[in-house]
């Protein structure tokens, strides 16, 4: 019995939260990684792009899954002043609205323009990260930006993979949950933009 209580004793013991600090620089990478997850505007945009990739043809999917994180990474390197952060966040929200609207409208929009839309949408998160770097000048850019690109990729894949599988299994019937989810994203992005304007 005393040995069985050992895990309990270990768990109860108060330890300082220094979790995952295997290197003092890891925080810069982790900051970038989490940025896509804790910024509601980016969450809406990236989930919308994941839906778009799963709903459309292979070319669009390829552009979204590979092109968006890369373009976001490269556009982060643009010399963006910190004062542009609000503007960049509004751009992310407008992109989220357009992408979600494209998913809601589904086949009524030509597939031809969707890769362009996806790549333009990738500029928003890139500019936000660039402005963030300008504001938080203590961050190490290469670590922060590689984390940010990976975070963007994770979030895209989290939405793309299950919906692409559903589409393979169900065919166009899988468009129904995609369009419903996209309507929630569109509603959320519009409200966030209204809050920004108000």
């Amino acid at each position: 019995m005393p040995w069985r209580l050992l895990p309990v004793a270990l768990l109860v013991a108060a330890g300082e939260a220094r979790a995952h600090a295997f290197s003092p620089d890891a925080g810069h990478f982790y900051n970038g990684l989490m940025h896509a997850f804790i910024d509601p505007a980016q969450v809406l945009l990236l989930l919308g792009l994941g839906l778009l990739a799963a709903q459309r043809d292979l070319r669009t999917a390829r552009v979204v899954v590979i092109g968006v994180p890369l373009l976001a990474l490269f556009s982060s390197a643009l010399p963006v002043p910190a004062s542009w952060l609000g503007l960049a966040e509004s751009l992310v929200l407008i992109s989220a609205m357009l992408v979600a609207a494209a998913v809601v409208l589904a086949r009524t929009i030509s597939t031809q323009w969707l890769p362009v839309l996806a790549l333009l949408a990738a500029l928003g998160p890139g500019l936000v990260n660039g402005a963030e770097l300008a504001r938080e000048d203590w961050l190490i850019p290469r670590l922060y930006l590689s984390g940010a690109a990976l975070g963007i990729f994770f979030l895209l894949m989290a939405c793309f993979v299950p919906l692409a599988q559903a589409r393979l299994a169900l065919g166009e019937a899988a468009d129904i949950p995609s369009r419903v989810l996209a309507s929630w994203l569109l509603a959320g992005a519009t409200l966030l933009l209204a809050l920004r304007v108000a």
Partner: peptide
């Protein structure tokens, strides 16, 4: 209608929400 109505509702609801946000 099974999916058009649940898509329509949040989209129009947003307009109401924006009016509320703007006071």
């Amino acid at each position: 209608a099974i999916w058009v109505l649940p898509v329509t509702f949040p989209l129009i609801m947003t307009f109401g929400g924006v009016l509320g946000v703007l006071g």
